[in-house]
Simulated scan of single mutants.
Amino acid sequence: MGEEIDKGATESRRVTRLSRLPEVQHRVGLGRSTIYRWMSEGKFPKPVQLGGYSVAWSEREVEAWISDRLK
């Protein structure tokens, strides 16, 4: 009767939150120009394209970047 759900598969999956530029700037304490310059130099995570000219950063990648700076 009905479909059986694999609980292991659903519990391990986590939703990635995306952050827009103003939030990223606030979190890391950097300005727009610095973020984009460091992205081109490979020093900061690149955003994902949302459509058109809209982009956002993975919260996990930004958190990992912050953690690396604190080591």
Rank of each mutant, 00 (worst) to 15 (best):
R14Y: 01
S54E: 15
G51P: 03
I66A: 02
G8D: 08
W57V: 09
R14K: 11
K43T: 00
M1N: 12
I35E: 09
I35C: 10
T16L: 10
E11V: 15
S54H: 14
E61I: 04
T10N: 04
S40T: 13
V48W: 00
A64V: 02
R60A: 15
E61R: 11
L21H: 05
K7T: 15
I66K: 03
W57H: 08
G2A: 14
L21Y: 06
G52A: 01
P47Q: 09
S33H: 09
Y36I: 01
H26P: 06
V24T: 02
E23T: 15
S67I: 00
L18W: 12
Y36Q: 02
V55Y: 04
Q25A: 11
R20F: 06
V15T: 15
W65K: 11
D68G: 07
L50W: 03
K46Q: 08
K46I: 01
W38R: 14
G52Y: 02
K7Q: 14
Q49P: 07
E63K: 06
V62N: 07
H26Q: 15
T34G: 05
V55A: 09
E11K: 13
L21A: 10
A9E: 12
E23P: 05
K43R: 12
E41R: 11
S67G: 06
W38V: 02
R27N: 09
L18F: 12
L70N: 14
A56N: 11
P45K: 02
R69K: 15
V62F: 05
Y36T: 02
W57K: 13
Q25D: 03
Q49S: 12
R27Y: 07
E11P: 04
R60D: 14
V15P: 11
D6K: 08
V48Y: 07
W38S: 08
R17Q: 13
P22E: 04
G8P: 00
T10A: 04
H26N: 13
Y36A: 01
T16R: 13
S54V: 12
Q49V: 04
E41G: 07
E41M: 13
V62I: 15
I5A: 06
E63C: 04
T34Q: 12
R13N: 08
R60T: 06
V48C: 05
P47L: 04
E61M: 10
K7V: 15
G42H: 06
